[in-house]
């Protein structure tokens, strides 16, 4: 049985300019110890999906319209906030994109690290501090017993992200949600942090949802990948399938536009146009206006994620009808 099953999640924001459907009918599941990559451009709904699961969407203006998210028998979307609180921060943890703003600058790192332990495990400050030092050591911060008393500004960006990881893992969560944890970091530091997440995941047999816009990061890290566009999942499969047997024109275009895959000197492949305005009602496929393979019916027929091969799902109408391969 999967650790987390999300069914038909719909989250929208009620703004002055209309209802923005940020996440529209998203369903997925993740097993224990598995790494799931969620890839998409900004505004594709990848972060909102995960924020919805943890009840981090400000309501209003946000609203979870429908859906269930069963985490080990309990529905995260229906639970009272008291019950949610015993899961969130203990059994499910999250790392955010920007380590500069996600730590409290007024509190020493030690206070922030032991907070989840004191809330969830009811142990003494002293014990908690010991555990916190151990977890800082685990994420590779040298001299942890001294540096734990530093303030966040005394750490560099990469070090702060390590502190965030230590904080997220201190309660030994079963699921870690990492929202673009390396986007704000340099390539060299990104490599360090990715290796660290991989190592710790293996040690704790933890499930990881890794949100990113970088197909390169996903390739080395994730077991499964789902690609999101305009609030929907457009393709989902095992990692190699996404790269070698692409079954959706958007995924293909996205790969083609990565500079490192293209020979130098040639013009880069680009996807024409811009992502759609999510407050407008779309009848057909949201990618249709930018799609190189578009035909008339794409604009009218509503899309749904359907199996197109063994353990491979695509939301492209033409792929489902076997008219095109990608």
């Amino acid at each position: 049985m999967p650790l987390l099953t999300v069914e038909n999640l719909k989250t929208s924001f009620h703004t002055r300019d209309g209802i923005v459907k940020a996440v529209d009918s998203v369903s997925f599941s993740i097993e224990r110890g598995e790494t799931l990559g969620i890839v998409g451009e900004s505004g594709s709904g990848k972060s909102v999906t995960c924020y919805s699961l943890l009840g981090l969407i400000p309501q209003p203006p946000g609203k979870i319209e429908s859906g269930t998210a069963i985490f080990d028998g309990t529905d995260l979307l229906q639970d009272s906030s008291t019950e949610l609180r015993s899961i969130r921060g203990k059994r499910i943890s999250m790392i955010f994109q920007d380590p500069m703003t996600s730590l409290n600058p007024y509190l020493r790192v030690s206070d922030q690290l032991i907070e989840p332990l004191i809330i969830h495990e009811k142990i003494s400050r002293k014990e908690a501090l010991q555990k916190a030092i151990a977890s800082l050591n685990e994420v590779g911060i040298q001299d942890a017993s001294k540096r734990i008393h530093f303030y966040p500004h005394e750490f560099s960006g990469g070090m702060r992200q390590r502190v965030m990881i230590a904080m997220a893992l201190i309660t030994r969560p079963e699921l870690l949600i990492a929202d673009e944890p390396t986007t704000a970091l340099d390539v060299t530091v990104q490599a360090q942090i990715l290796e660290l997440i991989k190592k710790l995941q293996k040690e704790h047999n933890m499930a990881v949802i890794f949100i990113t816009h970088d197909l390169g990061v996903v390739a080395g890290l994730c077991d499964r990948v789902q690609v999101m566009y305009a609030g929907r999942i457009v393709e989902s499969s095992h990692t190699p399938n996404i790269y070698y047997n692409t079954r959706h024109p958007y995924t293909e275009s996205l790969q083609k536009s990565i500079p490192s895959l293209q020979p130098k000197g040639k013009n880069l492949f680009t996807i024409p146009g811009l992502p759609p305005d999510l407050s407008k009602i779309m009848e057909g496929c949201p990618f249709a206006p930018r799609c190189p393979q578009v035909v008339e019916k794409c604009h009218q027929t509503p899309i749904a994620l359907q199996p197109v091969a063994d353990d491979h799902y695509s939301a492209c109408l033409r792929v489902q009808n076997s008219e095109i391969l990608t």
Binding site: L194, L215, G216, G220, P240
Partner: peptide, 10 residues
């Protein structure tokens, strides 16, 4: 350190 968008090579 550049991540390569290719699982096999990665």
């Amino acid at each position: 350190a550049i991540p390569v968008p290719d699982p096999e090579r990665e």
